[in-house]
Nucleic acid binder design. Sequence first.
DNA 1: ATGCCTTAAATCTTAAGA
Length: 291
Amino acid sequence: MRIATWNVNSVKQRVPRLLPWLDQRAPDVVCLQELKLTEDVFGELLGSELEARGYEWAALGEKSWNGVAILSRVGLTDVTPGLEGGPGFPHQEARALAATCGGVRVHSLYVPNGRVPDSDHYAYKLEWLARLREVVAAGPADAVVCGDMNIAPADADVFDPAAYVGHTHVTAPERDALNALLACGLRDVVRDRWPDERVFTYWDYRAGMFHKDCGMRIDLILASEPVAKRVEAAWVDRQARKGTGPSDHAPVIVDLDTAPDGDIGPMVPPPSARPSRGRTKLPQAKIVDRG
DNA sequence: ATGCCTTAAATCTTAAGA
């Protein structure tokens, strides 16, 4: 089972890159972030294209900003839109979506940016991460936490650590929050696979940063121990950052072997063998005041 | 030079990203 996560930086702008990428990489489960549109527009834009490729999908979006989705061709059940009990700014944003795919609880996350340390955005980011830890800790044993975490786990995950001192994404409270999440029993499977390599997932569009490989590793796939044991490959798809009209983030891809009992979830017939089904209807994100 | 690029939304400029 191949699981991928990709911050597409506007799915509308990325359609010419996303569809060929789905065909070439053939992921079974895809977590998307920064849709920058509502789930209704997402369905109008991609519903038929995804169905033709055998994907079910769920999305939580909003106009202009944020937005997350999960695509799956190994089943998509128990969809949870939003971060249950999570903070808002002031209202809860479209930053979290979970579903069970192929027997694994999959989280697609777009963690708040934080902007400037000690700002209200930064406090919101830390509150959001604290609640995420609680939600993941209370969840199933087989889980993957995927997405744009907006934290570089270590100095090796930033092209110039000195230049980032005092900036968000690298501060101790942010890294503490990420480590607390990992302490739920999650593994950073890309770093595990490439312990000493220069691995980035995001490069600023400006000043030829990708060409110079001046980036950051902020898009992560964190796997619970039972899932981490099944990892056969874990890598960043730098090809998707090249060429015309890329996102500023590259996809992260992890391949799992089948579970010990061979169970990767419910059997899903090819789309030609089952009646057409619409998109998975979702309730609005619960709106929670920060108090 | 608090910028260099790309996005969205509302204009002909601003906010946001990290």
